[in-house]
Design a protein around this nucleic acid. Structure first.
Lengths: 97, 97
DNA sequence: TTGATAGGCAAGTCGCTACTTGCCTATGGT
DNA sequence: ACCATAGGCAAGTAGCGACTTGCCTATCAA
């Protein structure tokens, strides 16, 4: 649903997570946690990030693959393009650069 | 700010408003109210829509021009394109159709 | 000038959501 | 077998956001 995509993008922390995943795919939960702390100074618990990842996953923006005791997360940008074309007028001057 | 754009898009009613404005620019508050009620069956007060329009306006998605006692609202899709390109990998296969 | 229309301001309520805390499961190393 | 690591589940809390209600201002028509 587009609803889930918009709600997922509404939170700044979730957008940071997408930033991390677009930089490097296949990160685990702990990797994302430490990156958010060190690079962005966010002091969040592991569960907070886990819940954010669940939201992103149910929105289709993040795909996860389990492997042993690790769970790797990958970015899927496919839902992004569809939701924005909703309001782009086909023949508006700013949309035909 | 991109923050305001994402928060503005998070609400379903505000997205409906954008739907109405992309269909016809220059609508007043009351026009939008009646359209949301008749076409989408939303039973919202005038103030609710007014506050939504304020959010959209502060996000730069809606421009307003006052004329007498009327206030016309226009859609501006410019902020939309910038926020999505944030996570689109330049050379990913799904982004080069 | 009076009344009706179009809109704004401010306070208050209510539900959702982000976050925490505590405990539990499972996999891997030694 | 043991312990550490990677992650999950569930309940509880706090703050934000959507919506309402009531009242106020401004413009136009009669």
């Amino acid at each position: 649903m587009a609803e889930d995509v918009f709600k997922a993008l509404a939170d700044p922390t979730r957008r940071r997570i997408l930033d991390e995943l677009v930089e490097r795919d296949g990160q685990t939960l702990f990797e994302i946690c430490t990156r958010l702390v060190t690079k962005h100074g966010l002091g969040l618990s592991r569960q907070a990030i886990s819940q954010h990842l669940a939201v992103l996953e149910s929105a289709g923006l993040v795909l996860s693959r389990r492997q042993g005791r690790y769970k790797f997360h990958d970015l899927d940008t496919e839902p992004l393009e569809r939701i924005v074309t909703r309001w782009l007028r086909p023949d508006a001057p700013e949309n035909t650069p």
